[in-house]
Design a protein around this nucleic acid. Sequence first.
DNA 1: TCACTTTTGTTAAATAGTTCACAATCTAAT
DNA 2: ATTAGATTGTGAACTATTTAACAAAAGTGA
Lengths: 214, 214
Amino acid sequence: MANQNVPQATAERLPLYYRTLQRLVTIGKTRISSSEFGDLLQIDSTTIRKDFSYFGALGRKGYGYDTQYLMDFLRKTLYQDELSKVVLIGVGHLGTALLNHNFQKNNNTKIVKAYDVDPKKIGTEVSGTKIYAMNELATDDNSDITAAILTVPVAHAQEAAEMALASGIHGFLNFSPTVLSLPSHAYVRHVDMTVELQALIYFLNHSMEERNSD
Amino acid sequence: MANQNVPQATAERLPLYYRTLQRLVTIGKTRISSSEFGDLLQIDSTTIRKDFSYFGALGRKGYGYDTQYLMDFLRKTLYQDELSKVVLIGVGHLGTALLNHNFQKNNNTKIVKAYDVDPKKIGTEVSGTKIYAMNELATDDNSDITAAILTVPVAHAQEAAEMALASGIHGFLNFSPTVLSLPSHAYVRHVDMTVELQALIYFLNHSMEERNSD
DNA sequence: TCACTTTTGTTAAATAGTTCACAATCTAAT
DNA sequence: ATTAGATTGTGAACTATTTAACAAAAGTGA
Ligand SMILES: NC(=O)c1ccc[n+]([C@@H]2O[C@H](COP(=O)([O-])OP(=O)(O)OC[C@H]3O[C@@H](n4cnc5c(N)ncnc54)[C@H](O)[C@@H]3O)[C@@H](O)[C@H]2O)c1
Ligand SMILES: NC(=O)c1ccc[n+]([C@@H]2O[C@H](COP(=O)([O-])OP(=O)(O)OC[C@H]3O[C@@H](n4cnc5c(N)ncnc54)[C@H](O)[C@@H]3O)[C@@H](O)[C@H]2O)c1
C-alpha cells in the first residue's frame, strides 16, 4: 500500500507529525500550512512538504493541509488503526514507570503483560498489568505480540531478548545500555538515556567553548 | 582543544564508544581493532576509524587501539573528568525511576536536587535527592547546574523549561512529548518514547509487508 | 470574472554521513 | 634483521538528507 521508498528519516518523523495533528484537531484547528507546521515542530517547511510528498499529494495548493484528513492518513500509515500488543520485561524502577504510563491514551498500543524473575513480583499486578514468571516466556506463544519493551538489568538484556524472540516476538524497544545481538529478522530500537545525557553534556560544553573562543 | 569540526553523528557515537571501552578495560582487554570494535557495536569499522580520526591519530597501524588510552581520551573529550550537576523537574513515575537509577555509577553526573509542585513530595527525599518546591526555582541560582531533566506532565513542560532557563540552566533532557520553544542559547535533547514505540511499530509492519510481497 | 496572493509539489543544489579501497606503516614471528 | 600479516588513516565515491528555488495550481476578495 504505502510507498516502500520512504526514507528512514522521514518515517521517524511521522509519529511526531501524527501526535501534533491529534493536538491540532482537538483544539479545533482544521487547516495548517507547511510553514506554520514547521514553526511548531522546529522543522524546515520544505522537509515537511517533501516528507508528505512520498505518500502522494496530501495537501492543496494555496490552502495547506486539512488536519483531520492528514491525521487520518497518518493513523493508517502508522498502523494506529489496529491495537498493537506489547509485553514488558523487567518490572523494576523504569519498567514500573512505563506500566503506570498509559501508552494507550492517544497511542493505540497496550502493554498486555509483563515478565520478571523476582518471586515477590510474579503474580502481582502493576496498573492492571499482570506480571508473569520469566520462565513462562519460554513456553508462551507470543506470536500475536508486536514488540517487547526491555527494562531488565544490562547483564540480562541479551538473554531476555533471545527468550522473547524464541516466543515469537520480533520487535524490541531496548532501554538497557547494551547493544543487542539478534538475527536479522529482529528489529531493535535503542533508547539509551546515558548516551543522551553524555551527548547533551558534550554539546553544551562544546558550544560554550566555541562561544568563548570566537 | 578538541576539533570543532567533529560531525554531529560522530559526537553522538562517542558516549557509546566510551561506555564500551569502560567495559573492555574492566574485563582486562588491553587492545582492540576497529573491526572487532565495530562487530561489538554493530557499526562499520570504517565509520569507527573515521570518527577517531577527527581527533588525530589515536591508534597504531598493525596493532589497533589501546583501550585504556582511548578510554582516557574519550573521558576528557566527553568532559567526564569533571562532575556534571543536573537537576530533575517533576518527581512522578518516570522522575522517580530516574532518581533511583544512579547515573553516577560509570557516568560522572549527579542529580543534585529535584523540583515538584506536589506539596506531599516537597521536602521529602528520593534515593538521597531532596525535592524542592517549584516556586523556589524562580529564585534559585542554578548557574552551576549543567542541565535539567524534564519529567513533568506535557502541559507544564514549556513553563518548567522557561523557569529553569531563567535560573541559569541552559541544557535540557526533555522526556515530555512536546517540542520546547526556547531561545537559541538553550540546548535541548528530546527523549520521546511514544515516538520510539510508534516508529518501531511502523518499521516492523513495513518490513513484514515487504517480505510478504517479495 | 479577474487580479493577485498563498502554498503546494518537485527538480536541482547543497550538505552530511557512510563505505570503499588502498598506501603507509606498524607488529609479530622466525 | 627480514618478512608476512595486520590494521590504521584517509582521499574518493557513494548514499542519504536537507534546503533552495520556483512553476503550477488553487484560494481569496474585489
Ligand atoms: N531507572 C532508570 O531511570 C533507568 C535509566 C536509564 C537506563 N535504565 C536501564 O533500564 C534497565 C532497568 O533499569 P531499572 O532501574 O528499572 O532497574 P531495576 O533493577 O529497578 O529493575 C530491573 C528489574 O528486572 C528484573 N530482572 C532481573 N533480571 C531479570 C531477568 N533475567 N529477566 C526478567 N527480569 C529480570 C528485576 O527483578 C527487576 O524487577 C537497566 O538496564 C538500566 O540500565 C534505567
Ligand atoms: N512514565 C513513563 O514511563 C513515561 C513514558 C513516556 C513519556 N513520559 C512523559 O514523562 C512525563 C512525566 O511522566 P510521568 O509518568 O512521570 O508523570 P507523573 O504524572 O507520574 O509525574 C509528573 C510529576 O510532575 C509533577 N508536576 C506537575 N506539574 C508540575 C510543574 N508545573 N512543575 C514541576 N512539577 C510538576 C507532578 O506533581 C508529578 O510528580 C510526561 O510528560 C510523560 O508524558 C513518561
